[in-house]
Design a protein around this nucleic acid. Sequence first.
DNA 1: CGGTATCCTAGGGGATACTG
DNA 2: CAGTATCCCCTAGGATACCG
Lengths: 129, 129
Amino acid sequence: MPETTADAPAFNAFSAHCPSRRLLDTIGDKWASLTIAALGVHGELRYSQLASTIEGVSQKMLTQTLRNLERDGIVDRRVTPTVPIRVDYSLTELGRSLLAVVCALKDWAEVHMPQVDAARAAYDAAARP
Amino acid sequence: MPETTADAPAFNAFSAHCPSRRLLDTIGDKWASLTIAALGVHGELRYSQLASTIEGVSQKMLTQTLRNLERDGIVDRRVTPTVPIRVDYSLTELGRSLLAVVCALKDWAEVHMPQVDAARAAYDAAARP
DNA sequence: CGGTATCCTAGGGGATACTG
DNA sequence: CAGTATCCCCTAGGATACCG
């Protein structure tokens, strides 16, 4: 492996001011990526549908996540002020471009997770008498 | 294994048992992704080099992160038992394939972060009188 | 229905000190 | 140098209750 590109670093997420660092805070959030994924699959979902789709999420975290994603321009929030209020969430154009990246993650997981499991089993077997 | 229905096909990270969910726990970890990135850029690094590259990481978190990544078969740990001990870390083949995904994330961030910033500014300006 | 507001506790993670 | 061990604080986030 050539390591001669050390002074022309492609990856500067090591500084707190790099956009990469902040992206990690956003999509690295468990509920955020799950929300993006859910909206990517279903296209448009109501609050309650999201809550039941993303199993295990509390309404606090769901709301918080949706607000953050809305603020970042990743999801669109459309309110229909009917008698019981109705709110639909969907990905923005920006969100859809992020979806592609999230899907790349998912694909990696599905392909390689068996290897990860094997590595874990081997590690645990070796290191733990 | 999670079954894929016809109209909700690919993405089942919503169940806690799906590999996607566990991947999120790994790469979603701030220090883990930064570590992968660092090793991706530099090829091979000693413990102390990692510590100084990933600015802000404590040795506790660095060690913990390294152990987890090693256990998952993502990084390789090579000990040279010289007088002061020397330990080098590098990405495994599996780790390098994950690096590609992490880089996809980084690229998305660098391309779209201006839009995210604009969205944030607009949101904050609108919602805060 | 789709949230907000409050309380409260598990554990993530920093600082520090010690060891092989 | 490369960790391990301890203490300890702080906040992410679940449970619960109430509102438009």
